[in-house]
Simulated assay, not measured.
Amino acid sequence: MAELLVVEDDETIGTALTTGLRAHGHAISWQRTAHGAMAAVNGRGFDLVLLDLGLPDLDGVELCRRIRAALPGTVIVMLTARAEEMDVVVGLEAGADDYLTKPFRFGELLARVRAHLRRSATLPPADAVLTIGDLVVDVAARRVTLGGAEVQLRTKEFDLLARLAIDAGTAVSRETLMADVWDAHWFGSTKTLDVHVAAVRRRLAAMGDPAPPPITTLRGHGYRLESPAG
């Protein structure tokens, strides 16, 4: 049984989500305000957070940052009426792993929740240590180092880099990355993938020397983590 935090101030939506998710075997804590959400987060851990961005007492993006800081390994899915691409990108960069635009079908949300909970399992073998030049991805420890210095990555950023590292030097399609890192039956925008690739690039580049192996964009196909041997 997974523990989910629902942060939603709309009584109708919150009731529907809570009732529906409980009916599918999940333990639910429903909070209507950012203050209540942070009190819940500080009291216990959650496997996944469904976060409405339109809250009355605090901007949802700022709350997303605070939840991410408190629960670095927890999946956060934004629920937003803001369909504009920039709003989605800002939310993802604040620490969200995924988003759904209102109105959405409960079946779609349930599929996303199930997918993210399944993806909590590591992609490579649990004891794998992937070395690409000065970059080392230790799957068991969920640790990435560059030149011996640890790189701080969020949950999906680590999964994405690990997936690219498995096939370092080889092109990996967008469809494969979405299936392996998010869900085999993903439907909807792949903007999530692009934002996460950009975030991984920034975090690696911020380490300074040595230079990280680049992640090359293959337009119309996907991405490739370059291998020094390649």
Rank of each mutant, 00 (worst) to 15 (best):
R143W: 06
D194G: 14
L225R: 09
A165C: 12
K102I: 09
V7T: 03
R112L: 07
P103L: 14
I67W: 00
G95Y: 00
L218W: 08
E3H: 15
T101V: 13
V89G: 02
V172N: 00
A27F: 04
G14W: 03
F187P: 05
L4S: 00
V139L: 01
A70R: 15
R224V: 06
D47E: 12
L63Y: 01
L135W: 08
V200W: 01
L21M: 14
R219H: 12
E93T: 10
D97K: 05
W182Q: 01
A70T: 12
P228D: 09
R66T: 04
V137C: 14
M38A: 09
A37E: 12
T74R: 02
R22Y: 06
V77P: 02
D47K: 08
Q152P: 03
T190R: 04
T190N: 01
V129S: 12
A229F: 07
V6P: 03
T176E: 03
R65Q: 06
G208K: 03
R119T: 15
P103Q: 15
S227I: 10
M78I: 04
R105W: 11
T192N: 07
G107L: 11
V61H: 09
T190C: 03
M86P: 01
S29Q: 14
E62S: 08
L135M: 11
D138Q: 08
A140G: 05
R82H: 14
L161A: 06
A81C: 12
D10K: 13
D127K: 10
D87C: 04
V200T: 03
S120H: 13
A198L: 14
D138A: 09
A184M: 07
D138M: 07
S29Y: 02
I13W: 02
R119E: 12
K191F: 04
T145I: 10
T170H: 06
M86E: 13
P124H: 11
